[in-house]
Computed example of a mutant assay.
Amino acid sequence: MVNVKVIADNFEATIRDHPKMKLKEIQRRVTSKIHVNVNMIRCRKDKKMVKDKLAGNFVEEFVMLWDYADEI
């Protein structure tokens, strides 16, 4: 059974490179690469998970920016 985390792990780079990719396209790619039919809800959750992960990285890096400025 394919859950959202498996899809996110396999397609993180693709979604990161193409953030405006349609859910139908994600669903088509999952079907062609993993040979599993997934519903749109899983694709939506996957895309949200990847975007949240990327946004979290930016927040962490921005917090570190102030630490770097204090050191200088």
Rank of each mutant, 00 (worst) to 15 (best):
D9F: 06
K53R: 15
V36E: 13
N3M: 08
V6N: 06
G56H: 04
K33M: 13
I72R: 11
P19M: 05
V6R: 08
K33A: 13
I34M: 11
K53F: 11
F11D: 07
V63M: 09
K22R: 14
R28W: 06
A13L: 12
T14A: 03
E60T: 07
V59I: 09
M1Q: 10
M49D: 05
V36P: 00
N10W: 01
F11C: 03
K51C: 02
D46Y: 01
F11Y: 04
V36D: 06
I34C: 08
L54R: 06
V59L: 08
V63E: 13
M40R: 15
R28C: 04
I41F: 07
T14Q: 05
K45V: 05
N10H: 11
E25D: 15
K51I: 08
E12H: 07
A69F: 15
I7P: 07
G56M: 06
R28E: 14
I26N: 01
I72W: 10
K48M: 12
D17F: 04
I7Q: 04
K24N: 12
G56S: 07
R16W: 00
K47C: 04
D52T: 04
V63R: 14
A55M: 12
I26C: 02
Y68A: 15
D67M: 09
M40Q: 10
Y68S: 14
V38K: 02
D52K: 02
A8P: 06
L65H: 11
V30Q: 07
N37I: 08
A69S: 10
L54H: 07
K24E: 13
H35P: 01
V50G: 03
R44E: 10
L65N: 11
H18Y: 13
D46R: 05
V6A: 08
D70L: 15
K20F: 05
V4S: 07
K22P: 00
V36Q: 15
M1P: 14
D9C: 01
N3S: 11
A69E: 13
M49C: 08
D9G: 02
M1W: 08
A8F: 02
C43T: 00
R28D: 08
F11Q: 06
M64S: 11
M49L: 15
P19E: 04
A55G: 01
M64C: 05
H18G: 00
T31I: 00
I7E: 05
K24D: 14
K24G: 07
V38W: 02
R42N: 13
C43P: 03
K48L: 14
M64G: 04
H18S: 07
N37Q: 15
